[in-house]
Design a protein around this nucleic acid. Structure first.
Lengths: 148, 148
DNA sequence: TTTAATCCTATAGGATTAATAGAATTTATA
DNA sequence: TATAAATTCTATTAATCCTATAGGATTAAA
């Protein structure tokens, strides 16, 4: 399961991207609208800023803004930022690679082979799942559901 | 990431299935061969027994045996047993379904749509990844790697 | 009766998660 | 220049989960 932190981060980013204004939005408004604990959200937004996904303006009239276009922010990046590697085994990650102690031969390990396959698909899907892509999905789902 | 418990469970089951004998194997031997802490492994094997994946014989000459053919034991089942649902959001699981508090409309939620897609693929892959399938994968990888 | 195995209960330490509190800093604007 | 409004920083807490261990009860074969 995703951690709440990751889930809140995604929800917050989608919320920010959905507005059609270039004015900054304050943490309080996101927290209220999406029912995210305010102080918890604050720390999440800070992390997103450190990762150069958001930018911010301090003081009165300040708030948060996307630092990049929505099509350049993917769930893969957000999930890695808060929950670490997408892979389910350390021996199939690229950036966090670690050998399994008990493993006799990684090249012929059947368990690894399964989780490598799963990882490759997952990374591909989640790299494509950008904030822009999520908004597109909502648009598509909306028109499908309004058919009745 | 998989918990150690799940990883050890998979490793242990593959170990048991690999032997070509119908004699039971004792926890100690699995622990030694696969470098799994003995007492920890014991509790894992117990859980696998409760789930009717293993069967056991007590007393001298006892030990553990597969309770079903290896093609009827999937990673999906093992992972669910120890780590819970395969899905990354509670709103896309079948058996553990829970609505997201903040969600306005599940049917048109773009975030959910991504994780539903991911879940469906994951479940399909992991249901196919039986212990028998893992052994087949090892056999295939072995012959590929012996080419040189 | 001894030995060897599973089975059961309890618990400890550590890490992680989710959240809260409070103060410092920055900035717009009245 | 004072004030209000916002981010930023530091610290702490409570709860839960993860990993592992200990010790004894039970069962069964030899």
């Amino acid at each position: 399961m995703l951690s709440k932190k990751t889930k809140y981060a995604i929800v917050a980013l989608v919320h920010i991207a959905k507005r059609n204004t270039k004015d900054p939005i304050i943490a309080r408004d996101i927290a209220d609208a999406e029912k995210i604990p305010y102080k918890f959200l604050e720390s999440i937004l800070l992390d997103l800023k450190k990762a150069a996904i958001l930018t911010s303006r301090k003081g009165k009239g300040g708030g948060y803004l996307l630092h990049r276009p929505p099509q350049d922010i993917s769930l893969a990046e957000i999930m890695r930022l808060f929950d670490g590697p997408l892979a389910l085994l350390p021996c199939v990650t690229h950036t966090y690679y670690e050998r399994c102690e008990e493993c006799k031969d990684e090249q012929t390990c059947g368990i690894r082979s399964v989780f490598l396959e799963l990882r490759n698909y997952t990374v591909e899907l989640l790299k494509g799942a950008t904030i822009a892509n999520i908004l597109n999905r909502e648009f598509s789902l909306l028109s499908v559901n309004s058919d009745d």
